[in-house]
């Protein structure tokens, strides 16, 4: 396979072809080999400036990007909204222009508002990577999920994936829908109607996707179960009768774990509410790959940084 044409930004996976994703996953495999060495660093991005711009709390994604940039020998600077000029009312566009004037080559942005990275990309001469924006997209999470599935099951094509939980509010679900369908997986979305919205909304964009309100039905034949974080505020918003009721119907409980067997991968993008959407037994089950997802995240982000820097 030859390398795909140059890419400037990574806002979502919707404009990534199957070939481009495949090439990224292959590059990520090589990056994983680098991370397994005693000296976990290569000089590929020496002298490039990467800025982590996090307007929303995040531990694993921010640290993951930071380690990825360092493993490629780039300089990385962390910017958090707190303590910055944002508190004085500096607009996003001003901030991006300032970072550009300071010599930033790549901006990695997390923002609570959908579209913020897209707006930043319009005003930045370098590259913008979306590290999660509102309910919209989280492309590197989807890439690391694809990588983990491919690593464990050998391929993504034909794999049955069930995404369960607060899908309507989930940027992880949306980006995974683009990535999984483009790579030929079969996706089932499973949630209570209040957390899923009308089925037609999903099938209009991803016609091959199956929508289901009964978790036990959805689980039949699943190769991968991806549980999403349930934010407890959803109950206060009246979208759930109770957390216990949610767990009974949509939680990855010990009973469901038993029924799944040992070959079905258990995934979670984190952070988890153990005992709500996923039982502690499921987190430590031999077929759980939740830690592997975190580890693979660094390799996948290295591959993406490298691709954008080329």
């Amino acid at each position: 396979m030859t390398s795909a044409p140059a890419r400037r930004h990574a806002i979502d996976l919707d404009d990534f072809s199957g070939d481009e994703i495949e090439a990224l996953l292959e590059t990520a495999e090589s990056m994983k080999e680098v991370l397994a060495r005693e000296i976990k660093q290569v000089p590929a991005l020496r002298g490039r400036n990467v800025v982590n711009m996090f307007y929303e709390e995040s531990t694993r994604t921010r640290i993951s990007f930071e380690l990825a940039a360092r493993a490629l020998s780039a300089n990385i600077v962390n910017f958090t909204a707190r303590g910055s000029s944002v508190e004085k009312g500096e607009s996003l566009v001003d901030t991006v222009r300032t970072l550009q004037a300071l010599g930033a080559d790549i901006v990695v942005m997390r923002h609570s508002q959908a579209g913020a990275p897209y707006l930043a990309a319009q005003h930045f001469r370098g590259s913008v990577i979306n590290a999660g924006d509102g309910r919209h997209a989280h492309p590197t999470q989807a890439l690391l999920d694809l990588f983990t599935i491919r690593e464990r099951l050998g391929q993504v094509r034909g794999v049955q994936v069930v995404i369960v939980g607060d899908i309507v509010h989930s940027r992880v679900a949306r980006s995974n829908l683009w990535g999984l369908t483009r790579m030929g997986a079969h996706v089932t979305l499973c949630a209570p109607p209040t957390l899923l919205g009308p089925a037609a909304y999903w099938t209009a964009t991803w016609p091959e996707v199956r929508v289901c309100h009964r978790f036990d039905e959805a689980l039949a034949g699943a190769d991968v179960v991806m549980a999403l974080r349930l934010q407890k505020e959803r109950q206060q918003a009246g979208l759930l009768p109770s957390l216990r009721e949610y767990t009974r119907r949509y939680g990855l409980t010990p009973e469901r774990l038993e029924r799944l067997g040992e070959r079905t991968l258990i995934m979670h993008p984190g952070p988890m509410n153990e005992g709500v959407e996923i039982a502690p037994e499921a987190v430590v089950a031999p077929n759980a790959v939740i830690e592997a997802q975190v580890t693979n995240g660094v390799a996948v982000r290295m591959a993406l940084l490298y691709r954008l820097a080329g």
Binding site: E26, P43, Y306, G310
Partner: peptide, 21 residues
């Protein structure tokens, strides 16, 4: 694979595929 050690990343167009070492 020496791709990640090249000194001409910007000169050669899109980043080449990195293969395994």
């Amino acid at each position: 694979d020496i791709t990640l050690y090249r000194d001409d990343l910007k000169l050669r167009g899109p980043a080449p595929l990195v293969r395994k070492t």
